[in-house]
Amino acid sequence: MRTRRWQVVAALLAGLLTMSQAACGGDGKAGSGSFTVGLLLPSRSVPRWEHSDRPLINKRLKELCPRCTMEYANAEDDADRQRQQLTSMITTGVRVLILDAADAKALRSSIIEAHRAGVPVVAYDRLAEGPVSGYVTFDGAQVGRLQGEALLKAMDGRVKSSQVVMLNGDPTSPNAAWFRKGALSVLAGKVSIGRSYDVQGWSTDDAHAQMSAAVAALGPDRIGGVLAANDAIAAGAVSALKRAGVRPLPPVTGQDADLDAVRRIVVGEQYMTVYKPFRAEADAAAAMAVALGRGDDLSKVATTTTDSPTTRRIPSVLLTPRAVTARTIEQTLVKDGVYTVDEICTRALRTACRQAGLAR
């Protein structure tokens, strides 16, 4: 009887194991079938998050794991809200998190919470503190260098006779310091930095206020260029310069290739932007999330490692950004399908587009 009883128990255990493997895709690997990936983005003030990153990540996730689902939340520039969103996703059972932290330091405790719950975190676009499992971004030093080089070229003969205003990104973002360091590696010793401001929340309104303060302090005729960390900041700088009656406008840099910024470049209000092919970044993040969800390491995805203030040798992908001016919009943004000529060239911009070689 005892032998028969053990045979029954063994058969039941074998059946349960088979069912468990089938639920996981049939090979015993955790997550090789269906699971949920949580995506947490930081704000709506920068258009790219909603218009580019979110749909691209979701599309690539479905391609790599057709039965996977994505749960999404936007912090709207509120780190406390993002902490709550992250905790909620852990509670509802997401297997992996892709996180662009609203505040890299403030989210550290939440990332520790995820780690303890067995939920790996992929840091997206900016490196958060804590035990993150992977990191995907663009080379921030190169972003700054592209901006600095473009600004020097645009200023040309005015380098010695005028000053540069630096409108840096949000100080809570490690990327802001990265961009600034890259820009200064080009500008230091070649131009005079008249004023340098940190722009809270990468806010257009705050950038407008800071640029207005710079004009008042330096005078409208002494500003030879504006190093704006991204396109939202550039928008605030341009509006402040126009309101102060600065003519002609000095060259203004940017980043993210927002549609409004591209249109400002066409009409000559902004000199350049930095295009970061979002599809490549989204693809790498989705690939990391799927690998982690299936219990695989990141050796086939990551190309390098990065150290954060809290974690060493994080598997990473650092992508290459590209500078865009009026003359290179077609070879970059239009060619890559980011925008069509018709989207850029509204009726009011037709003449400017023709001069930039865009309108047919």
Rank of each mutant, 00 (worst) to 15 (best):
A123E: 10
D125F: 00
L127T: 00
L127C: 05
E129P: 01
E129L: 08
E129R: 00
G130M: 04
G130N: 05
G130P: 06
G130C: 06
V132I: 15
V132P: 05
S133A: 15
G134R: 06
Y135L: 05
Y135D: 08
F138S: 02
F138C: 02
F138E: 04
G140P: 07
A141T: 02
G144H: 02
G144I: 03
R145S: 04
R145L: 04
G148F: 11
G148E: 14
G148Q: 12
E149K: 11
E149Y: 10
A150R: 09
L151Q: 08
L152N: 06
K153Q: 14
A154H: 04
M155V: 07
M155I: 12
D156H: 13
G157K: 14
V159C: 14
V159N: 12
K160T: 14
K160M: 14
K160A: 15
K160W: 10
K160V: 10
K160C: 13
S161Q: 05
S162C: 06
S162E: 14
V164C: 01
M166Y: 06
L167H: 02
N168W: 09
G169P: 09
G169D: 11
S173Q: 12
N175W: 02
N175H: 03
A176V: 12
A176T: 07
A176F: 10
W178M: 07
F179C: 02
G182A: 06
G182D: 02
A183P: 03
L184I: 05
L187F: 09
L187Y: 06
A188E: 15
K190V: 12
K190L: 09
